[in-house]
């Protein structure tokens, strides 16, 4: 099959069909990947002139404690957000899959925030989380909490705030993935279990969760990649603060490259991001192709 190549006419036709895609793809996907690699070995001046400096950008990056802080912050967010978004996503999917009245409504509501822009999401949550006048503190005061909570001014609370906003914004996506997985479980499995006298909990543990193994893996990988790219929520809600305690890798790349105008070091850090994402994507791809 591989050896039976097309006729000359087919060869030309194939490339004509591909031409528009290939032009754009080469210019804005393939070339940037190469260019970023090249830039990471150069010093780029404000006037965009490059001088080759070997591995200096990388050694400078490794010695920069803020780089390690940003990398740690990013990993920290991956660690706290992935389990949360998986558990909440699965819970929502189970609720939506339980044949309740109003299921369509529930599914829409849980998913709705996902279609909103990060700017809108951040703006809403910054106001909700404000001390003294914010909706959340007002609500907590009503519930009997006396102290005033400064959500975005203390590192741990700031991370919790970012996590809450992220869950609210994106968990609908995971719900949809889990829902697709739940709907693929054959109904007779449950019927057989009921005949054997298995209760709801037992069915969940022995049928639902094991059947979701693949979807679970996929969602974990996707969520990890997505959390690793965190930028908008922290940049717009906390500006990376208080101090630099919520500054992520992407934000640091942005600041290095566009504020300090050090495109070389920023490119070196971009390659760290690149390698980590590719690593996870390869796992995801392996998983996709070994599905059956």
């Amino acid at each position: 099959m591989k050896l039976r190549l097309g006729s000359k006419g087919e060869n030309i036709a194939g490339y004509l069909f591909l031409l528009p895609f290939l032009i754009i793809y080469s210019m804005f996907m393939l070339y940037p990947i190469v260019r970023g690699f090249v830039t990471s070995f150069h010093k780029v001046s404000i006037s965009m002139e490059s001088t080759f400096i070997g591995l200096s950008n990388y050694t400078q990056m490794i010695r920069d404690k803020y780089f390690w802080e940003a990398l740690w912050n990013t990993f920290y967010f991956v660690l706290i957000s992935t389990p949360t978004l998986i558990i909440v996503g699965l819970t929502l999917a189970l609720i939506v899959n339980a044949n309740l009245k109003g299921t369509t409504f529930l599914r829409s509501v849980y998913f709705l925030p996902f279609v909103l822009s990060i700017s809108v999401i951040s703006s809403i949550w910054v106001f909700i989380l404000q001390p003294y006048t914010g909706l959340l503190n007002t609500f907590l005061h009503k519930m009997g909490v006396v102290s005033e909570i400064f959500w975005l001014d203390e590192p741990t609370l700031a991370w919790i705030s970012i996590l809450i906003a992220t869950v609210w914004w994106t968990v609908g996506f995971n719900m949809v993935l889990f829902l697709a997985g739940l709907q693929e479980i054959p109904e007779d499995l449950y019927e057989a279990a009921r005949i054997d006298g298995a209760g709801t909990w037992r069915q969940l543990v022995s049928i639902t969760l094991p059947s979701l193994k693949n979807v679970m893996l996929l969602t974990v990988v996707l969520q990890t990649i997505s959390s690793f790219k965190l930028f908008g929520q922290t940049y717009l809600m906390t500006k990376g603060g208080p101090g630099t305690s919520t500054r992520t890798l992407v934000q640091y790349i942005y600041e290095k490259g566009f504020i300090e105008r050090d495109m070389g070091t920023a490119s070196a850090m971009s390659y760290v991001l690149f390698v980590v994402t590719i690593l996870f994507a390869v796992i995801q791809f392996k998983f996709f192709t070994n599905k059956d």
Binding site: F28, M29, Y31, P32, I33, R35, G36, T39, I225, K229, F231, V250, I253, Y254, G257, M263, A266, S267, S270, Y271, L273, F274, T277, I278, A281, V282, F285
Partner: peptide, 11 residues
């Protein structure tokens, strides 16, 4: 597999 976040500088 390549996120735009990793391409912002060369782009």
């Amino acid at each position: 597999m390549v996120p735009i976040e990793a391409k912002i500088i060369p782009l």
